[in-house]
């Protein structure tokens, strides 16, 4: 019983970290990057390349890879999201362009690197840690801790700093924010940079344990997306709760009925949440105006 709870919560950490990449951009731009799984792959491949081919040390390789992934995220916003989200809330073309991008990245990396998993070769906390009497890998625990730390940092930045104030303003009313001399587009781009940095970091840390392959992303896309929806895409705390719920449900059902039904049950929870409370457990209810 306890093992299920611990495993669920700890894997939930990874989902939460990636889901934070959804939430950040959704708060400020009302858009999501559906190629988020592929940005994990990009981050991981970059880190592998920087470490293995360029010869950077582990931490430096991770830092540079995370930064570059973030910048690619900003570029994605500028090229594939912003021009395709100009016609109000019902304009969902950005969704299709980012899905298109995910196909491009998967295809490109598969052609270049092959579909097989390659070990990242560094960055893995090679130990088993005991949490509440249950053994989990050090890497998973690290990911969970990173997710919590990142969430707390984001909450502090957004509620305490000037930049955070700008972001909250954009999230509430982008047009009026522009009247204050603040560029909503710049805030949006920045959110994409930060969001994809987090995603890249998550990808690298995850790949450090499991190895990197072009197929790394899609399963995590669904998990992170589920965590985001369950917790609520308008709340920074949402991913943590959503990740925990999704992690617990999939772990519990997975242990009882097999991993297939674990995933199925996770998605059923998502669908249930969308139906009962579309804004997510912690999300803000958006008033419908006519």
């Amino acid at each position: 019983m306890m093992d299920v709870v611990v495993t669920g919560l700890v894997t939930g950490g990874l989902y939460a970290l990636i889901a934070q990449g959804f939430v950040l951009t959704y708060i400020t731009t009302n858009t999501l990057n559906f190629a988020i799984g592929e940005f994990m792959v990009v981050g991981a491949f970059l880190a592998m390349f920087l470490h293995g081919n360029v010869g950077l040390t582990g931490l430096l390789a991770i830092a540079v890879a995370v930064l570059v992934t973030g910048l690619l995220g900003g570029l994605t916003y500028r090229v594939l999201v912003l021009p395709f989200s100009t016609e109000g809330k019902h304009d969902t073309r950005w969704l299709l362009t980012t899905v298109g991008l995910s196909f491009v990245i998967v295809n490109l990396t598969t052609n270049a690197e092959g579909a097989n998993r390659q070990p990242l070769g560094f960055g893995n906390v090679d130990s088993i840690v005991t949490v509440l009497g249950e053994r989990v890998t050090g890497q998973q625990l690290l990911l969970a801790v990173v997710a919590v730390v990142v969430t707390v940092l984001l909450v502090v930045v957004i509620s305490r700093t000037r930049l955070g104030g700008d972001m909250r303003a954009v999230s509430e009313d982008a047009e009026t924010t522009a009247l204050m001399g603040i560029s909503p587009r710049r805030i949006g781009a920045l959110s994409y940079v930060v969001a994809m940095m987090l995603v890249g970091l998550g990808g690298i840390l995850w790949a450090a344990q499991t190895g990197v392959s072009p197929g790394l992303g899609p399963p995590l896309l669904i998990a992170a997306f589920s965590a985001g929806i369950i917790g609520g895409l308008t709340s920074l705390w949402g991913p943590l709760l959503g990740g925990a719920v999704y992690g617990l449900v999939t772990a519990a059902v997975g242990t009882a009925l097999g991993s297939l039904w674990g995933e199925v049950s996770g998605l059923l929870v998502v669908i249930a949440v969308l139906i009962v409370r579309p804004e997510g457990l912690l999300g803000r209810r958006v008033e419908i105006k006519v």
Binding site: T97, V99, N107
Partner: peptide, 10 residues
């Protein structure tokens, strides 16, 4: 092919 169709979609 899949990547090219992704580009085509965009």
């Amino acid at each position: 092919t899949p990547g090219l169709l992704g580009v085509l979609l965009i």
